[in-house]
Write a protein that binds this DNA or RNA. Structure first.
Length: 283
DNA sequence: ACTACGTCCTGCTTGC
DNA sequence: TGCAAGCAGGACGTAG
């Protein structure tokens, strides 16, 4: 499942292989991945055909490619999305949804099994898509304001994990890295934001940065020249996970078995000894 | 205003 | 063996 590090790896690949190229032809093979382009698939294709890609940008889990028209191609990988740079004669992937032929012997392909992700053209978005104005900066962004984030967290009654997953507060954090960061900070995800100290919030931010930096160190070099990939199933970032997916296995700090609980129609993993549940408030 | 939850998707895995 | 349920979960819309 692509979170910030995986998306950043994709951005770097796009920067290396797609920036400077012109889109020669677009095939929208499935309408759903362009559903957020409200003017429809034909308009989507027309808007990017003949345009040169000027840069590859990212905020949180969103990517966008500023075009020489002043528009931008906005992309989100969702759960299973991939942006692949593939030779023109490579066989179509089973879940190929959009093909963008470039002025090169390779093409940019959007492949997505579950189609939670998608593409859209942001009008005038080359200077920053308004569609993602509500997405917060991510913790790796030099303009991220730690102090403001701590103040915001401490005004919320929601559990800290829920806050981390809200992209309006901090972006780029998904279910996996939220669990990892909370383990590093020794905090249970149900701890209300309002009951955390400033130092604890800063510990969480440090944890997020540590796990993301580690993932980037592992993943940033694992794609080859013509293959821009992110694949949550194979999980080349999985090696260093401390809690996610380790239910029943010993905590690497204290050896207590890691616990899995249902959370927001998904799962949370934590160490019951290092990350004790918050005490229920007396009533 | 703030918070919480349901929904969208497909395919692999699990269980009867 | 076959079928159905469970599970994966980011972002958004809506309900409370």
């Amino acid at each position: 499942m692509p979170e910030l590090p995986e998306v950043e790896v994709v951005r770097r690949g796009l920067e290396a292989h797609v920036v400077g190229r012109t889109v020669a032809r677009v095939d929208v093979l499935h309408a759903r991945p362009v559903r957020r382009h409200l003017a429809g698939p034909d308009d989507f294709s027309t808007a990017i055909t003949g345009r040169m890609v000027l840069a590859a940008c990212r905020r949180g889990k969103y990517l966008w490619l500023p075009l020489d028209s002043g528009d931008a191609l906005l992309a989100h990988l969702g759960m299973s999305g991939q942006l692949l740079v593939r030779p023109v004669d490579a066989l179509d992937e089973r879940h190929l949804r959009v093909r963008m032929v470039l002025d090169a012997p390779y093409e940019l392909r959007f492949v997505d099994q579950r189609m939670f992700g998608g593409l859209a053209v942001s009008r005038g978005g080359a200077v920053g898509p308004t569609e993602i104005a509500h997405i917060a900066r991510d913790p790796m962004d030099s303009t991220f304001d730690d102090t403001a984030f701590a103040a915001r967290v401490r005004k919320k009654s929601s559990g800290i994990k829920r806050i981390l997953l809200d992209q309006r507060a901090v972006s780029g954090v998904g279910n996996i890295y939220a669990d990892e960061a909370l383990w590093l900070a020794r905090l249970h995800g149900d701890r209300p934001g309002s009951r955390l100290t400033r130092a604890q919030v800063h510990e969480v931010l440090a944890g997020i940065r540590q796990v993301m930096t580690s993932a980037l160190d592992q993943g940033g070099t694992s794609f080859d020249a013509l293959y821009v990939d992110v694949n949550g199933q194979s999980g080349y970032f999985d090696r260093s996970l401390e809690v996610y997916g380790r239910a029943g296995e010993p905590c690497r700090r204290c050896a207590a078995p890691i616990v899995r609980v249902a959370f927001m129609n998904r799962s949370s993993f934590f160490c019951p000894r290092c990350q004790p549940r918050p005490r229920l408030r007396s009533r």
